[in-house]
Design a protein around this nucleic acid. Structure first.
Lengths: 186, 186, 186, 186
DNA sequence: AATGAATGAGCGTTCATTCAT
DNA sequence: CATGAATGAACGCTCATTCAT
């Protein structure tokens, strides 16, 4: 069954987000998942494969969450704001996921290859920024640059909130989202 | 001598930025610093203390590098752009430092207490954003929020550059800095 | 069916001769035999029993192969040479069997008890050497000693051949067999 | 110091000869040597390296023991018998060594490369058989073949003795040595 | 009979830390 | 100050064996 696999992945996510990769022994993952240590190796080749698989799944889930209610039929600004708010809301609702992603992506574990699934989801962002540039709404910069100008502050602010240094309420979200919109528009 | 201490810190920085915290044994740090394993414990209480100390030093150095040529006598925009470019240039010139800081700050190692020295340096940024808000040049938001709106994209773009996904040249730097300026100005 | 039992024994033989006892997990035996891991325990009590059973079967087969075309009606020398050549030919034709036997007999796995079947087959060798001594053709030594003087070199030479250090052709076989004959004759 | 290294090697020899490679955990070697488990890895890269090193040392010691009192000035037969008796006496006096060597050489651990030291010692045997062939005392066969005809029975008989199936006394040794001499002489 | 998921003890190995020198 | 041999707890992982299906 996939039950155990899921339990293992969930325990790994929680533990790693709280304790870090190397302070999370396989034995602890086993205990937290309610399985034996040995069976983890039935589902994953080794610890690294487990973590990489977890990263892929969480990354994909995260990107998809950014695109909830997204439609290319909506105006650019609405699309932009929807993504922005989705990103922040999801990060606030599932803080372990964001923490895990940031930890992974800033660690030497990272492997810059992207899954086919991830590339596909990413295409929507690419299209958004491409279109904005073509319609001369956005500054003429590579999509990845526009992406970072748009969303790097969002992630940074969520971290500030989780660390207790900033109170992320609706007003702040609105204001910050608008600020990012201003950053990329002409 | 402080020579050994420095050698240890430098080796630790390089090794951790390349290999991660837990894949960097003390014995390797010893070898890379040209000292014995035992002597590290003369200068630092333990591995955690060594890493925390390294973090403090690098963080302070990083913040100070952002303030090179900074003067409160200069106009707001010049000050802002100077910081922005300093940040990016320093990160590009000393990539191990940025990588280490990001790795540390996104890990559960992190301890949100700030050194007196760091607080002092930080005051300059605080003053800058405070003044901008008072003069109604910047959107009325907490300084930390303005900080992230201003500099989170800079860090993100440096990472893209180091990963090979974006070519960070002067034009891009200018354009991205201006975008961040637009984000926070009214 | 006995089919599976046989498949398990054959896979075990091949794997152990190539990889050694402890580098041959039950799971690998299962895979190589095309059966499940669990069913092995239907045919054999445990790994040790499986290996012991395999040893018994191979040992018996080996001894019987030495006696192919053997008849007490033939002259002593013919009988001796027939056994000698059978031993070498069989070992060359089925190298895994010889390798397995040697590995087993030189390991602490070994248990010096002999099966009834093996004792029976062994009787022929005993009779051969007994008769030779009585007829004053062979040096007066215990049969087991004459056995080793006769065949230990044969086994050693097969190992040299398999290791590539000696080319075992018909001439060498003849010469070596005669040498062994000379060793035991008066 | 080399004290610990030696203690580790000796414990490994005894334990492996009694229990086999894989039934001899590193932890047991540590306990039997009176050292910690960790320090073994200071002297040997890993278990395999430890065992290979042990093999090399024991093999060399064994070969050298065969050549005690050996001199090329002595007559062929004396030289031959000296080696033969040395081999048997050493094997009987240090049974763990012989058991270990046989176990190793019949296992897939074996690596047929020979140390420079071993090759050098081996040269004496080579010379002996070469000379015997040239002087037309020995049958014209490759030295390695003459070696096995000469000594394989000796090893086999020691095993029989240790297993309790043959009583190896002086008379038997003399007779068996002469039998082997007969095997290789014209 | 047969499967293969599951267990958990035990393995080889690493490494932060100590301490005799 | 300095060394590096030494410790031993803890890790990732394997595998003989069991058992629900």
């Amino acid at each position: 069954m996939t039950d155990k696999r899921t339990a293992i992945l969930e325990a790994t996510l929680t533990l790693i987000s709280e304790r870090g990769f190397h302070n999370t022994p396989m034995s602890l993952i086993a205990k937290a998942s309610g399985v034996s240590a040995g069976i983890i190796y039935h589902y994953f080749a080794n610890k690294e494969a487990l973590i990489n698989e977890l990263y892929k799944e969480i990354k994909l889930e995260f990107l998809r969450a950014m695109l909830v209610d997204y439609s290319e039929d909506l105006p650019l600004k609405e699309r932009f704001l929807s993504i922005w708010h989705n990103l922040v809301n999801y990060s606030l609702n599932y803080p372990a996921r964001g923490v895990f992603l940031e930890q992974f992506e800033n660690s030497p574990f990272r492997n810059h290859e992207m899954d086919e699934d991830v590339i596909q989801v990413t295409a929507s962002f690419f299209q958004l920024f491409q279109q904005g540039v073509e319609e001369e709404v956005f500054t003429s910069l590579p999509p990845l640059v526009l992406f970072d100008l748009s969303f790097a502050p969002a992630i940074a602010l969520v971290k500030r909130h989780l660390a207790g240094f900033v109170e992320m309420d609706d007003d702040l979200m609105q204001a910050a989202a608008i600020a990012c919109w201003k950053a990329i528009t002409i």
